[in-house]
Simulated assay, not measured.
Amino acid sequence: MLNEAVDALAINPDGHYVDATYGRGGHSRLILERLSPQGRLTVFDKDPQAVAQAQALAASDARVSVRHEGFAHLGELGEATVQGVLMDLGVSSPQIDDPERGFSFRHDGPLDMRMDTTRGQSVAQWLETAEVTILAEVIREYGEERFAKQVAAAIDRRRQERGHFRTTRELAEVVAGAVKTREPGKDPATRTFQAFRIFINAELEELQQALEASLHVLSPEGRLVVISFHSLEDRMVKQFMARHSRAVVDRRVPFMEPGAMPFTGVSRVMPSKAEVAGNPRSRSSVMRVAVRTEAVA
């Protein structure tokens, strides 16, 4: 939803916009096409490879500034200084397609899964000491896997019998043996890999911080545009936008007018049939849009 997302930002050519997940830079380049020489674009990304590409863009375009950090730092941009924030959540295609990053169960590679490979624990390192109860909780909560206990137990048995996990194939094979049934066309390891990736990168915690920060940085009439790819993310975004766009009446003084809410114009956009046909990974995407009201917190 490249064009739909940038269209939803309703670009003011002289405005300041944020691409909170630079990735391959597709959204950023389209935003820049719609900005005047006075416009500005700030990009965030934790992935060193994405940051290197963004820095190359910034070297040739003075309107671009790059931050090598997660979008949880969005609030540092200052109150009401931004006219639009775009978040394209989840893992990017280059990350999935590169076996060395360890995100995919379809390619054998190091069991890493970190968005930022310069810091933090890899999944392999975490699995060395994670307790079975914690494994089951992570798989159940972040992967919505109904066989979470069985997968956790299988991982623990494998550790005791053959030592620590090192590759994605080793993990995928163990998970496949523990997940007895799966939806047609879905690999048994899908939910467990998703769970470990979300956990190791603290993705949901960062998303919550970034959503709250958007209330602070967006100027009146500014747009928040979020593209999600699975139910955990989308549920958070949906509930956040709904919570901040619903009129609240003080029951102690019911005759008073409802208080002004931070968001209005909340909407949902699904990918077109043409996009899904050309990019099957987009089939699970959902885009939600909210407009900042005049009341800035």
Results as ranks from 00 to 15, higher is better:
D19C: 02
F105I: 11
G75W: 02
G102D: 11
A52H: 00
R223C: 13
W126I: 11
D14V: 06
M1S: 15
E144N: 10
Q49V: 15
M87H: 04
Y22N: 06
R158I: 08
H68G: 11
L77T: 13
E206S: 12
G78N: 06
V248N: 03
F165W: 04
S219W: 01
S284T: 09
D98V: 03
D19R: 03
Q38T: 07
E173G: 02
Q194D: 12
V66F: 07
G120H: 05
R288T: 09
S228N: 08
V51M: 11
E275D: 13
E170Y: 01
G102V: 06
F255H: 09
R223E: 06
D250W: 04
P99D: 09
F240L: 10
Q160D: 09
P48Y: 09
E205F: 08
W126N: 09
A154G: 05
R101D: 13
P110S: 11
D97G: 12
N12I: 09
V217S: 07
E275T: 02
V179H: 05
A210M: 05
T190L: 13
V266N: 07
G177D: 14
A136V: 06
R166H: 12
L32V: 08
P94G: 14
E212Q: 10
T293L: 08
G120Q: 13
N279F: 01
R169C: 10
H27Y: 10
A274Y: 00
N12S: 09
A72H: 02
L32G: 11
T42G: 02
Q125R: 12
E173L: 14
S272I: 08
E69M: 05
L9Y: 02
D47H: 08
G259I: 12
T42Q: 03
R24I: 07
H16P: 02
V82N: 00
P258C: 05
G23D: 12
E4D: 15
A62I: 02
R34C: 09
E69S: 06
G25S: 12
A247N: 11
T133Q: 14
I96G: 07
L30C: 02
A242R: 14
T168S: 07
E100L: 09
Q125P: 00
R246H: 12
